[in-house]
Amino acid sequence: MKRYLKLVNFEFNRFFKLYLVLIGITFVAQMSGVIVESKSYHNQANEIMQEDLLTQSEYVQQYGPMSFLNISESIWFLGTIALCAVTLIIYVFFIWYRDWVGKNNFSYRLFMLPSVRLNIYLAKATTILLFVLGLIALQLLLLPFENQVFKWIVPEVFRTDLSVLEITNLYYLNLLIPKNILEFILFYGAGMTAVMIVFTAILFERSYRLKGIFYGIVYCGVSILIFLAPLLLQASLLENYFYPMELLFLEIAACVLVLAGAIWIGNMLIKNKVRV
């Protein structure tokens, strides 16, 4: 256990500086987004009101009020979220390959550590999970501040106020932040399963190199097929035999099966086959 925690801490610190940069960019970009979008709405409103001689309430009637949705749908928000997502997806690969590249072959030292090698695999997965959840927490922390800044800039007549909860319910954000904790666990559980499938595929490549790429792709295909099996059967052979709730449980079971498969195969590869 202690070895595992040490490994997690080690992996965490290796990415921490870049992670802080990511947090910084998100903070600055989103805050500027709030200010720019709010100001431009307000300025545009003032301009049109002067040109067309409208009162504030007439303007709102004709052009509609502004809500936080205008901001959270803007490139400022979508961009930062996409940036964080892409960075972490790249890091899912880089967290392994960085051990093999560079002057001194670090993987050699890592695999020589006197602990179960599976710990390395699990520590890397834990690190990715921590970073992902950290960014979700950051978004949840930023939203109330951003909402407040928005309220300061745009006068009340022009606004439709939304609570943080309502903001997270809207549009794409409800995929990142689902409405209840159970769903949160299911979503991120499925996400982590996907990460572990990629990990195991990477280990295939690291074990068998060129041939391993092929093995890895086949392995991913099989995993996805098992995961989707209940849905595919339901749509084809079984003709909607299962009720929705039953299907959900079957999907969870399929996901657990795939996850267990990923860890088991990953363990075999890292223990016996991986090449330094």
Binding site: L130, L133, G134, A137, L140, L141, L165, I177, F184
Partner: peptide, 25 residues
């Protein structure tokens, strides 16, 4: 370990309190 402990605690508290609030609302 302070960095990782701090991040874990903040994450847990923020996400936890968000979902408590959500279930109350």
């Amino acid at each position: 370990y302070w960095k990782i402990v701090l991040l874990s605690i903040i994450t847990l508290v923020v996400i936890g309190s968000f979902y408590i609030q959500a279930s109350l609302a």
